[in-house]
Design a protein around this nucleic acid. Structure first.
Ligand SMILES: [Mn+2]
Ligand SMILES: [Mn+2]
Ligand SMILES: [Mn+2]
Ligand SMILES: [Mn+2]
Lengths: 234, 234
DNA sequence: GCCCCGTGTTAGGCCGCCCTAACAATATCA
DNA sequence: TGATATTGTTAGGGCGGCCTAACACGGGGC
């Protein structure tokens, strides 16, 4: 069932209110979501058409079976993200909750599962005597450092070449990206962007993959990716 | 400047296309965002009114100074989340990019900064000989386990009491949440929900905070939080 | 120069989501 | 019970975001 993220928020809030108050009124929903009651009413009509809530004029709002299922699902996402932000990244209560309520509508099942795995992983490491959470907290407290130092930007003349033909430890400026759609998108996502400066810092045993440094991050590029990147000596 | 998340996506895409192709046409944007050209045109009108793009009929689309700044900001969020999902949580390329493009509009500066700190932390640990990334990968590969084992659910009679007055290692069913708004929200976010079963597993030196187990997670409740939770022996 | 065709734009419509103002139902209390 | 205060609903409107259909422009072939 395709559902807008506002619709999901209404479901989520009805669910929470029913847990907290037992009976849910339109005004409660409005107060909680920060909208006016007429907005709630039309949202309820939409949800009712999709058989997600039961609602009659002047009556209480309740979730249908389907609605309850969906609401629980939304809230499960909310809680997982909230915990992740709060207990792993160390974000404040309020902000973690806000961010979670925004992101919950866009997180894939795989990402969600990975977050849960991460909790399990930390618990396991802790049982082995390594408390990553508190190490991270301490690390952030004493001021964090970007690894590898940042790279200076330049832009000048010599001839363009694919990064795959580049030499180690030379600064290159990225001129252009080629390759097919998927490759291009991945490169951009990783920060491999025209104008940026890049350095090959290491490489695999057969010459590839390349380990490059860009914007202070270390990335690994496969051969096809490195060929798609046109650079010029910086 | 308040901007809808679709508007941000248009800016982001114009930015990326200008990097990739040099000149941006309405049809490019439409293709890339999966919408029809008239939708692009009206989006461009909106962005132009807000002085974020330059655009004349039949002309090329370019970002204004403000628009470029915003586009870079959006894309910075995208990249950071993408990298986090991909390189820390181990999410596949495609899904990481999709999730990132959804979440980028809802992530707070603090959360973003924390993600970057996390990279730095991992790099630091790595420089100390501990490769958390690959440990996590291995951990996930061999099948992850929820820590502490899950807790059985029950629901029966005896008298209700605040969790703050509960005994250690006894299973309680949560009956009701009290306390003020903020406390309540935080409790719900953490999974402290009526109907769930909870156990006090440990406590601070002065009796508080309580370390509780709920839904297989370990949480810490301050005194005011524990007082807001009404429970009954399970 | 004219016609054709592709591409880009306008026109107009639908839906989601929000609002205020007016109105209807219900609760309160003399 | 009737007058009044509170609460909930309808009416109506605005904006964002998407669509299809119709129209306008501009370059290439003749
Ligand atoms: Mn939400
Ligand atoms: Mn939420
Ligand atoms: Mn996006
Ligand atoms: Mn994006």
């Amino acid at each position: 069932m395709v559902l807008s993220h506002t619709a999901e928020d209404y479901l989520e809030q009805i669910y929470l209110l029913s847990l907290r108050l037992g009976m849910v009124k339109t005004s409660d929903i409005a107060r909680e979501l920060g909208v006016r009651t007429p907005s709630v009413i039309s949202a309820l009509k939409l949800l009712k058409n999709r058989n997600l809530v039961h609602y009659e004029r002047y009556g209480a709002v309740t979730l249908s079976e389907k609605g309850l299922e969906r609401a629980r699902d939304v809230y499960e996402r909310h809680k997982t993200i909230y915990r992740f932000l709060r207990f792993i990244l160390g974000i404040d209560d309020e902000i973690a909750s806000e961010d979670a309520c925004g992101m919950e509508h866009f997180v894939s099942p795989k990402t969600l599962a990975a977050m849960k795995d991460f909790f399990a992983f930390l618990a396991w490491k802790k049982s082995q005597g390594l408390d990553i959470q508190s190490e991270l907290r301490a690390f952030r407290k004493r001021g964090s450092h970007i690894p590898g130092g940042s790279i200076t930007m330049t832009s000048e003349s010599p001839e363009a070449q694919p990064l795959s033909a580049g030499k180690d430890n030379v600064l290159y400026t990225i001129v252009k990206l080629g390759g097919e759609r998927g490759v291009k998108r991945r490169l951009l996502d990783m920060g491999v962007i025209p104008g940026e400066t890049v350095k090959i810092q290491n490489r695999g045993p057969l010459g590839f993959p390349l380990e490059i440094v860009i914007q202070g991050y270390v990335l690994t590029l496969r051969k096809d990716e490195a060929e798609a990147v046109t650079v010029r000596e910086a």
